[in-house]
């Protein structure tokens, strides 16, 4: 099967199908048009979904784009049109650049660690025969914890005065000061974020592993004695669709869902602590009431996410084998 031709029928390739479906909307295929006698009927079926998308996604997005061109009084009494100034202000601001750099670093580290550890645990759990149920339950249970609660638990163990991890670091001679020192806070946020996300990856990897046919594994066993080689050459490629899906989910998680963890760790007072771009949008818009500047930042974020999606689907998904 040639991977460069997405038109080849590949039933277990949901993303490709989705993309084809999207492409088909624009293309005029007379065969498909005659399926409905009345032209309004399909729109009627689509209406609820479209309404949700328009009201909760397009409308706010358009509003954000519009207000990003203004410097606006929070109460809406006056607005000065400033063109692209909000964008150039944000992009040339050293703090914004530093936040962007940290966000990129944070996404890479959190994604790599939570995918890596999740995969390792799944591979090991896959081999457990006795007590597999409780073992898996314990690993999965963390997933049930809401991000703010995870943040609170994390803050207890990283507390400057009573945190056991702070004491552990002190034992090794490092004065861990979460909330004061930039990188100490970064360590805390990364640890909590990774800890929170591992179970999610674990569940998916585990179910992915269980779909690898026993016959394939047994055949591989004849070919290679080394467990690592069997994993690398057989299991990992078969896991690739799961891994790709998780990669996207994890990047999204690191960029957006860690918001609550940051909010709890920095206790509403960001000071010189690291933060992600989303947290900065919230900070400037909702706490600072700078609607124009904050809108421009959120539009930049939308563009980044769109670009990231395109890159992922165009370059990365080609390497994924859906079997």
């Amino acid at each position: 099967m040639t991977l460069t031709h997405p038109s080849v029928s590949v039933p277990r390739r949901p993303f490709a199908r989705l993309m084809r479906g999207l492409a088909a909307i624009g293309a005029s295929e007379p065969q498909k048009r005659v399926q409905f006698d009345r032209p309004l009927t399909p729109w009627l079926f689509l209406a609820p979904q479209l309404a949700v998308v328009v009201i909760f996604f397009y409308w706010p997005s358009v509003e954000a784009v519009l207000s990003s061109f203004y410097i606006e009084d929070p109460f809406g009494f006056g607005a000065t049109f400033v063109g692209m100034e909000n964008y150039s202000d944000a992009l040339t601001n050293a703090r914004y650049q530093a936040t962007a750099a940290f966000t990129a670093f944070f996404c890479v580290v959190v994604t790599a660690l939570s995918l890596g550890i999740g995969l390792l645990l799944a591979v090991k759990a896959d081999k457990v025969i006795r007590g597999a149920g409780p073992y898996k339950t314990v690993l999965i249970s963390v997933y049930a914890i809401a991000p703010p609660v995870a943040g609170l638990i994390g803050m207890m163990i990283f507390d400057q005065h009573i945190g056991p991890i702070t004491e552990l670091f002190a034992f090794f001679g490092h004065d861990l000061r979460v909330g004061v020192n930039y990188w100490d806070t970064a360590i805390a946020v990364i640890t909590i974020s990774v800890w929170k996300q591992i179970p999610y990856n674990f569940i998916f990897f585990l179910s992915g592993l269980q779909t690898v046919p026993v016959s394939v594994r047994e055949a591989a066993l004849i070919d290679a004695r080394s467990g690592w080689r069997r994993f690398r050459d057989i299991v990992l490629p078969l896991l690739a669709p799961t891994a790709f899906f998780l990669l996207i989910i994890n990047i999204t998680y690191a960029m957006f869902d860690t918001f609550a963890i940051f909010d709890v760790v920095v206790k509403d007072k960001p000071a010189n602590n690291p933060m992600t771009l989303v947290y900065k949008v919230y900070l400037d818009g909702f706490k600072g009431n700078d609607i124009g500047g904050s809108s421009a930042q959120s539009v930049i974020l939308m563009v980044v996410v769109a670009a990231l999606t395109v890159v992922q689907f165009r370059f990365l998904e080609r390497r994924v084998h859906y079997g």
């Binding site: 000061r177 909330g179 000071a271």
Partner: peptide, 11 residues
């Protein structure tokens, strides 16, 4: 000095 948090400095 224990950062910007109110409680950290009070404790």
């Amino acid at each position: 000095f224990y950062g910007a948090g109110w409680g950290d400095n009070l404790r």
